[in-house]
Design a protein around this nucleic acid. Sequence first.
DNA 1: CGACACACCTGGATGC
DNA 2: TGCATCCAGGTGTGTC
Length: 270
Amino acid sequence: MPELPEVETTRRGIAPHLVGQRIERLVARIPALRWPIPPSLARALRGREVHEVERRAKYLLLHVDPGAVLLHLGMSGSLQVLPRGTPLRAHDHVDFELVNGQLLRFNDPRRFGCVLWQRRGTTHELLSNLGPEPLGASFDGEHLFRASRGRSAPVKHFLMDQRIVVGVGNIYAAEALFAAGIHPKRAAGRITLARYERLATEIRRVLEYAISRGGTTLRDFLAPDGAPGYFEQELFVYDRAGEPCRVCGTALRLADWGQRQTAYCPRCQR
DNA sequence: CGACACACCTGGATGC
DNA sequence: TGCATCCAGGTGTGTC
């Protein structure tokens, strides 16, 4: 489900309810999501105050004194702040119960998400090989250009590689490539610096705009307050194969590779 | 190192 | 209505 805008929307939704609050108890109803939930996590969190809720790539970090809870929403995860005692629904796997009577609830039907622990002063292995934040200062067209030299993979795959740049998944890769006029199957290594500069600009713009709209709700993404994202209504290509291009009217096509689907405009994207 | 297929898992949409 | 099949916002792992 969530790419950077959805994770950032989640962060903004939960942070005001968590920062400054104490965790009384961790309730894990299953032993593992994508990986086992560390058995020691409950003890590490008991009585701790949350100082900060940070986003790195598509991960969220709940910082407490001895370290941070590392959360990933996978494809289908979501977080909500609710009153303690709120009845459980299917796939409510983990609760962080707060002293103030609220709780942070992690729901994830497909269980591709994770709840892990990062000790203070260390960087979790999952975070150690990540590329720059697309909304940060060290991300630009030159970075993409340099990183792509010699690469034959389609530029869309290249953009979705979190070692190159983080936070861009299937929706926003497709949208940014459309906005930049670049064909998703073009070899990453055969794109000019000028075009990568345009692409970097469009990645930023699309992500920032999507955040301002509360993310994209395709099937089930809801912000922690239960509100859907409104960016879906403004998608240009994602999930629109066969429909007319919003710019030139040409029927959008589906890139003919196996795994993740990619719609594009054969006229606007070269 | 890079490219690629596959794995994990459930639920919703589709087609017969 | 029931059942099989396919697809989905991610990403680590194994193979070549």
